[in-house]
Computed example of a mutant assay.
Amino acid sequence: MTEQSLFSAFTAGDIALKNRVVMAPLTRNRARPEDDTPHGLHVDYYTQRAGAGLIITEATQISPEGKGYAWTPGIYSDVQVAGWKKVTESVHKAGGRIVLQLWHVGRVSHTSLQEGGKAPVAPSAIGAGAKTFDGEKMLETSEPRALELDEIPRIIEDFRKAAVNARRAGFDGVELHAANGYLLDQFMKDGANKRDDAYGGSLDNRTRLTFEALDAVLQEWEPGRVGIRISPFSNANNITESDPAALALHVVDRLAGYDLAYIHLIEGQTGGKREWPESVDMDDLKARSGTPWMVNNGYDRAMALAAVADDHADLVAFGVPFIANPDLVARLKLDAPLNQADSSTFYGGGAKGYTDYPTLDEAQKKAG
């Protein structure tokens, strides 16, 4: 492929994309506080970024139990479905494609964010030792309780119902969030999972919930409209795994049989160092998967161009650059300067730092 292949059309499963630049899922904490519903700001924000080949929404909780931070959106109520439907209709009208990321935070939560002040749930009663936001301040996550074996079907059913609601809301597909130290990742990694039943111990057992959730989603969506995000090498939210290389190979080999729209891999530490075990060959992982391959973690223009041109990736996801540059694809094509993101407005607030970043045309006009 040529260097400019990053900007060529690509079909991820059944989703036709106009380019290979993906807007990564980005938590921004701007849902309506009373019911965790997206609203007009979200319509504007995502529509502004419809130039992406694919938009992956911010992580969206599949149930009230799945919530870990204040003001994050859900996909379990009719009002949330209606709010998201306005987003998808506007993005589609602007020529974009958008999928919903399905999320259960597991132990990365606080009792103040759980219905009735209940303890968060996890594979084992081991605290995350991480931070969360309750709407007023940052605070330590609460100690979780271990899910009972007979509760697992309820979790799987919540993923299925969320997939139904995503279809009702008009999305082009869904992404299963199995990364970054949240519930599915907690089950997969042995630092958080000390169970001695069918969901603990061996790799088959620890990955069981992820694949059962995936199977549930596939009851409602064709495989070519379902993606999955994984981070086998990441310690995000203090998650640990004794053999991340073995986990990566196991998961990718299992996913190879699914014919999904894409596998979304975080290369290294989430939002941190791009490092993984020396025994892991990323290009071999891609080849083994037989699935459209999306990479993520600290990519800039030169890295993204090379990744696609060298067949290291089919799709490249950008996070922070999309926060500050609604027209990121156009800027990347022109190798134009990028707006710098204001980190003080990443989480919570209103339009400032959300929908008020100028496009290149707007910035040039303002400059005279």
Rank of each mutant, 00 (worst) to 15 (best):
Y357N: 04
M303Q: 10
A307D: 14
M1D: 13
L102M: 10
G53Q: 02
A163I: 04
A256W: 00
A125Y: 04
R20I: 03
D204G: 13
L183F: 11
G319Y: 07
F7G: 12
A16E: 15
K194Q: 12
E58I: 11
T291A: 06
E136V: 13
R97T: 09
T210R: 00
G271I: 09
D327P: 13
L265N: 01
I263V: 14
G290Y: 09
E143Y: 09
A162E: 01
S63M: 06
D35M: 08
V43H: 04
T111I: 15
A122K: 00
G319S: 14
L203P: 04
Q101G: 08
E58W: 07
Y347T: 01
G116E: 06
D327H: 04
N238F: 03
D36Y: 11
I56C: 10
E136H: 14
G96E: 08
V174P: 00
A307G: 14
I155T: 10
H177G: 08
M303Y: 13
A306N: 14
V280Q: 06
W221V: 12
T132F: 02
K366A: 13
R168N: 12
M138I: 12
N238Y: 04
D310F: 10
M303K: 15
L328E: 02
A256Y: 01
K85S: 14
A12H: 08
P64R: 13
